[in-house]
Design a protein around this nucleic acid. Structure first.
Ligand SMILES: [Mn+2]
Ligand SMILES: [Mn+2]
Ligand SMILES: [Zn+2]
Ligand SMILES: [Zn+2]
Lengths: 138, 138
DNA sequence: TTTGTTTTGCAACTATGTTGCAAACGATTA
DNA sequence: TAATCGTTTGCAACATAGTTGCAAAACAAA
């Protein structure tokens, strides 16, 4: 569906450009999470590095994608669910990174449990990343 | 206790050098977690960047310090508890990052809850990072 | 103190991310 | 369809983070 992509951009008041369309397409086909370098390679070296950085930034701000913290200190991005919008993410789900194949999954149905913090500490955001072996590699 | 530091190095079969002593000392005084750049500044620009990288790497391998994943994609290090040893970390505790003062805490007494993964996924390691406001900033 | 091993500092390099600016592009309106 | 105007892009230049090879220095053991 090419129109899905255009509609998503319009809905977020973003002009429809080649790089935005292509990068969104990559996310929809990938299923899992992508790193900046993945996109650089998969886009066929068409777009400037800077453009990709700026596009990802824009998408994060608009709530189209979200970042995933990883243990090895690399930045990953994945599509947000429809309920997300600018400044109002609903990313309270667990992320899973497979040590074998490297795929990162958004486990949308596995919610992050509440943790009891010591007195005086107040929570604003919680990130939970599990690593191990995924269903394909087991 | 200067001897504590030397003993810790000996116990891990590491030769006792100025940089290792100084960096361990910084961790013991800091209480919280430190970034590579913190150490670079706090050590009085004495040691080469490369030496600091290699020292931190060595300490992680020996189980003297552990890394903390952060949402903003920076690497933090903190002292391990005594039970940790090379290849056998007991870092199943929650980490807390204060949005106000930037301090990162190891909440050694707050354990990471088990999460139910979908069928086929097996856990090996779980990291949980909470951000918000710490006891000093509240 | 001598010896052999480990660690350090330096230089050079790769990777990752940011900024300013002019040219190209996209949306809108005539 | 063409003109206009704001947005987006690519480029160059820069900044920061991290890695590697190698010779000199420091350390541990004898
Ligand atoms: Mn996700
Ligand atoms: Mn910790
Ligand atoms: Zn896998
Ligand atoms: Zn604080």
């Amino acid at each position: 569906m090419q129109n899905r992509i255009a509609d998503l951009l319009k809905k977020n008041q973003l002009s429809i450009t080649d790089s935005r369309k292509k990068i969104l397409e990559l996310f929809q086909n990938a299923g899992g999470a992508l790193a900046h370098s993945d996109i650089e390679k998969m886009s066929g070296e068409h777009f400037d590095r800077v453009t990709i950085y700026r596009t990802l930034q824009t998408f994060v701000e608009k709530g189209i994608i979200h970042t995933i913290p990883t243990v090895d200190n690399s930045v990953l991005y994945a599509l947000c669910k429809d309920e997300c919008s600018a400044g109002h993410h609903h990313d309270n789900h667990v992320h899973f990174i497979c040590d074998d194949c490297g795929t990162t999954y958004c486990l949308d149905h596995v919610l992050i449990p509440k943790v009891e913090l010591p007195l005086g500490f107040t929570e604003k955001q919680t990130d939970l990343v599990v690593s191990g072996t995924c269903k394909n590699c087991n």
